Amino acid sequence: MFAFVVAAVFLLLFAAGVLRDRRRFGNAVYLGLAVTFLGIGLLAGIDDAPPGVAETVMIVGLLVLGLGPVVLAALLCTNGVKMVRKEGRRPANLLALLAGLGMFALMGLAIAAAVTRSPALGVLVGTTLLVLAYVSFLFLCFVGYAYLYGRMRIRRDADYVVVLGSGLVGGHRVPPLLASRLDRGRQVYEMLAARGGDAPVLITSGGQGPDEALPESHAMADYLVERGFPAGAVLREDRSRTTEENMLRSKELMERDRPGSSCVIVTNNFHAFRAALTARRAGLDGQVVGSPTAAYFWPSATIREFVAVFLQYKVVNLGICLTLILLGVLAWAVR
């Protein structure tokens, strides 16, 4: 019963957080804690379930704990190889592969600790599992809430649509990933324009990289205009180099022309929640929506987004991880 009460408290905190501001990572943690304590409450009452339910839950749990990590590691490695073949060997494209290999390495280490009965290996594995459990919990919170955030209704009172840039192919051509953002941005623009009143303005946001022949925002605007989008409705923000600068520079343009205005920000769906967190920090009154992305791109991209968010709160997160490691060292010292 206590677990259900705690779950209800966290669910209320989650609801209050969403009503106050959807763009908070705390909302994801509250939701994750609510689901966790709800699960604990259900498991605690499993003895009162109809005959056969407890046995079924136990079998399923053992299968998930035993085979789940192996299957997940294999899928990550397979996806990682595909990602490298399609997108190249940039560090960001290796994340799924490295995560899968890391899981296999940890499983091998656990087997070695069990076979050798080495206390040192046992403490190392236990400490690593504690840190991994904490990071995995945050990762599941991030993925779950990002999924919900991406399905929230688009506001209909925005004055601007801001499309975030990404790299250009060959230094001048819009790649499929960026084209997806622009097509989605156009859809949002047309929805807002249909409301009546003052027409919105679409901002293409992106500066010029060292290997690019022109600013990303110019290539993005050209892509839209060549496909019939009204040139007079496009504003080019061509000084930003990062997502945070996208937000700040676009905000400057909006405040210059329409002080106090709001916007809808468009990026790819895997990037939407982190972009929303960034928009909140930049003081931008904007909801973030995502555009479709190829399925094979998701695992590495999602891991990359989570790592970036994890490091945004590095004082708390690294502090907790360090505390768990110190507990492992203490356990080794007093064994």
Rank of each mutant, 00 (worst) to 15 (best):
I325N: 09
L327I: 13
A133E: 03
G144S: 10
F142V: 00
E252V: 06
I320M: 01
T204F: 06
D211N: 03
D21K: 08
A333E: 09
L63M: 10
G100H: 00
P292E: 00
V201H: 02
L130T: 13
Y160L: 05
V201W: 07
R184Q: 07
G197M: 09
A194Y: 05
A96H: 05
M1T: 11
E212M: 07
G122F: 04
A99S: 12
V57R: 02
D198R: 15
G171K: 05
C321A: 14
I154Y: 15
A8K: 01
R186A: 11
L98D: 03
L101K: 08
V309S: 08
D285H: 14
A96D: 03
E237N: 02
F14D: 05
G52D: 07
V309G: 07
N27H: 02
R155H: 06
P176H: 12
T56P: 11
V60G: 00
D47A: 14
L63W: 11
R155D: 07
A279P: 03
L284W: 06
V307E: 10
V84L: 14
V123P: 12
A113P: 00
F104W: 03
I40N: 10
A54W: 10
R117P: 13
L138N: 04
L129K: 11
M254T: 01
L97D: 00
G41N: 02
S262D: 02
R89V: 13
T293E: 01
A301E: 04
I303Q: 08
L318G: 13
F10M: 11
E244A: 12
L12A: 13
R155N: 11
V71I: 12
L182F: 07
L202S: 02
F14A: 00
L130R: 15
R117Q: 13
L62E: 15
A16F: 14
I203N: 01
G207V: 02
Y30E: 00
N269R: 12
F142N: 09
V6Q: 08
P69V: 04
D257V: 09
R236K: 13
M152F: 15
M58Q: 13
G61F: 08
H172P: 14
L140N: 14
P91D: 08
R155Y: 07
T204L: 07
F25N: 08
Q208V: 05
H218T: 12
N246K: 06
V264S: 05
G165H: 11
A158V: 06
A92C: 15
A96G: 00
